[in-house]
Amino acid sequence: MQTLLQFTIDVLSLGGAYALMALGLVIVYGILKLVNFAYGELIMVAGYGLFLMNGSGLPWLVMAAVAVLIAVVTGVLTEYAAFRPVRAKSVTAVLITSFAFSTILQNAALLFISPRPRNVPLPDLFSQTVAFGGILIPARNLITIVASIGLLLLFAFLMKRTVLGIAMRAAATQFRMARMLGVPANLIISTAFAISGFFAGVVSLLWIGRIGSVTPGVGLEPLLVAFIATVIGGMRSLQGAVLGGFLLAFINTALNYLLTQDLLQFRDAFTFTLVILILLWRPEGLIRGPATGQRT
């Protein structure tokens, strides 16, 4: 019983973070049908933002808000620097430019800050534990669950109830038609990147809250998680991204419980094998999403 509770909390806290990572990637993919390889670096810049504000004396929540804002701005900047000049020309070109942009950001961190991990300021709450139902739970896991589920609900509400949200869902299936109704393409695209940056920023707080420090390559694992979650969930659907995030968290956590120590090092390989099996069964992912979908 306690193991089950422990397991559930582990899956939910990991899955919440994974779902946010995946959602941030797929919100841009849904609109543009293009993958942002620099997505992981949005998480990185927010982390370095926190690091640079260390010792500034600001309340932590203010620092966190600024860090998220940095990710949002970088997200929008990514669109201008890597997507806008080529997005209408070639899908491959965008993969390359966003990969190149990611390399620039990483190497800039390497060059101007350091290759070594840097500690970020975190509130004490992140290192405390809560006793519940006979088990000890790290408070940061509960924070992750609450924050991610809250954000997912808020996001779903905004996409459903605001004109901009409805327009974004429309643009994901029929971009040209949406434009012919007066929905400005650039507003939709910039908003998608801003949302992507926002999710990355929040993920950064939660993720770096787990590991406690930031490195130039810190964005790689979240990027990979987002990639795999969206592929198994279905790249064309926001619900698919969330489902994929939780499913991946379930697989990873289950492997954590099942595998012995020396096999655990190969966890990613096992996860990947499962992903291949899922794709054999459903090449389009679990949730197929709308059949149509054109680019600008």
């Binding site: 327009a167 869902r169 429309a170 299936t173 029929q174 109704l181 007066g182 709308p290 149509t292």
Partner: peptide
Amino acid sequence: AMVPETRDVFPDLTVAENLLLGAYA
């Protein structure tokens, strides 16, 4: 206002939401 040959309803959106977007401008 344009009504394209391909119709292009937004398939995932409800009828009411489709209408709302018609008035986006």
